[in-house]
Structures are given as structure tokens and as C-alpha cells.
Amino acid sequence: MKIGAHTSIAGGVSNAVDEQLEYDGNCGQIFSHSPQVWQDPSFEDREVEAFRERSTDAGVGPWVIHSSYLVNLCTPKDDLREKSIDSMQREVEAADRLGVEYVNVHLGAHTGAGVEQGLDNAASALDELDVPEGVTVLVESDAGSGTKLGGEFDHLAGVLARSEQDIGICLDTAHLFAAGYDLSTPDAVEETVDEFAAQVGLDVLECLHLNDSKHACGTNKDEHAHLGEGKIGEDGIAALLNHPGLRDLPFVLETPTEDGRGFAWNVERARELRSA
């Protein structure tokens, strides 16, 4: 089972591997820089080599780089579009240097341009990227608030259909739940996975962000909870972990650190629920 957490690159990107091992994780996700600012990734050659070596030696992978929160692929604004494309280009280049397989991105918000135009904008922005061989851009599902796109399977399918890039999908379980896709029972998980398979396709699903939700299904509220302790609950998380169409994918945790528990607790909990 591939299970890990979003880890820090503070003090050097190779430290993310050591942190992952502290959680008993064997795959994971990082930011290449602060996600709150426009900033290019900057890694010294020795750190790149150390990250690659430690990941290989410890058997940790695949890794995902999560793009900046400022990136908005759907935007109708030319300046923001160009900044978003440039930021994503730097991310895929950083992934190539580090040997990271995936760069994860949210579609962003159309801010009044409309769903169809927003999807057109996102696909055309993705098509401007020169993605190195061995790196795949993943479009992440969204919680679906406001004019943000990605909260419906139709949005994900729409971008795939429009883009010439070889794009994959990352489903965030808390986002799915917030957007109205029930995951709280084995039957609900089966129905949601079947719907995704029919509308988008399991063949493009590359990764799952495994998070429980502090809020009810369909609320569009994105706040993560410890596995099995939110509104998705034990039965739903267990069904996700054991679903035959999902179980071989990497599961990346973005669960909170609170109540004296953090990533290590959730990694262990995932393994317990996997065998449930």
C-alpha cells in the first residue's frame, strides 16, 4: 500500500524524505516553495541529488509537487494567466530535476467568464506547458465553492477532452465529499467511483488525497479531519482504501495536526482501515 503525507522541505528538500520516514510513509507530497507567493523553485544540485538518493534508498515514492495556491488556470485575466503558466512551467521543471513524477494543480476560478470559457482557458493554459518526459500534471478535484471549477466530474472530463497534454487526475476525498459526492458508506463509495469511471475514467486517475471532512456532504466547505473521525467516517475511508479500482494508487494525506495527533497517527490509521 502506498500511503504518505504532505511533508516540508524546510532546511532542504531531502529533509522531506526523512520526515516521511518518521511518519512511516512510503510516498508523499511537497511544495517546492511557499504556496502563498509567486516564487520559482530553487534547489541546489547537492540537495537534488540527496533527495533522489534518499527517496530511492528508502523506497519512498511516488512524490507529488503541489503547485502554488495562486495559480489560476481558468482565469480570463491575461496577466494572471501568464503568471500561472510560468509558475507551472517552473514546477514541472523542478519535478524533472528532482525525479518527482507528478505536479498537482487546481483548475482555479473562472471569475465570471463562465464554466465553458473557464475550462477552455484551463486547457489552453495547460497546453502551453513544455512538460518533461516522466512528469505528469495532475488536475485536482475541488470542493466546488463560488466560481471555482473542478468540483464536478464534468469539469475534470471537460479539461481532459479539451487539452492536448497527457493529463492525469488527483481526487481529494474531502473535496469530493464537500462538492456533493457521498463517500460515507461502501455503497456510496462504489456509486461515486462508478460515476467517476463513467464520466472521466479510472485510467487517468493517478493519485488520491486521502482526507476526512469536518463538514457534511455537499456543503462546499473544505476543512480536513483525521481519518475516520469526520463526516466521511470509518466505513467510508475503509471503503476508499480497499476499493479495487483505487487500492493500488498512492494515497497522500493532508490531514490536520491537532488533538495530539498528526500524520503518523493517520498513516497508521489508514493501514488499520486498509485491512478492515
Results as ranks from 00 to 15, higher is better:
D79V: 04
S141F: 13
A216D: 14
E268C: 07
K2M: 12
G236C: 10
Q165N: 06
V131M: 10
D187T: 09
G12N: 13
L183Q: 03
G168Y: 02
G11V: 14
T185N: 04
T192F: 06
A238E: 05
V17H: 11
A123G: 01
L249M: 04
D222Y: 08
K231Y: 11
F196N: 00
E195K: 11
E44L: 13
T257P: 06
Y23H: 14
M1W: 06
R54L: 13
A216I: 10
E116W: 01
S14C: 15
G118T: 00
R269P: 02
N26D: 15
G218P: 07
Q36D: 14
E190Y: 05
E206K: 09
A58R: 04
G114I: 03
G28L: 12
H33F: 14
D182H: 08
Y102K: 06
V131Q: 07
I167P: 00
L273D: 01
L119D: 00
G151A: 10
F153V: 02
I237H: 01
L205R: 00
R261H: 12
S141I: 06
S275H: 13
P256T: 02
K214D: 07
A198Y: 08
A188R: 03
V13H: 12
H243F: 13
E49F: 11
L138A: 10
S213C: 07
R52H: 11
H66N: 03
M1R: 09
G236P: 03
D235W: 09
G12R: 13
A95C: 10
F263A: 12
A264W: 04
G230Y: 06
A276G: 13
G108S: 04
D40W: 13
R274C: 11
E128C: 14
G260V: 03
E19M: 15
L21R: 14
N211V: 01
G168C: 05
T257R: 09
K221Y: 14
E140M: 12
C170H: 02
Y69C: 08
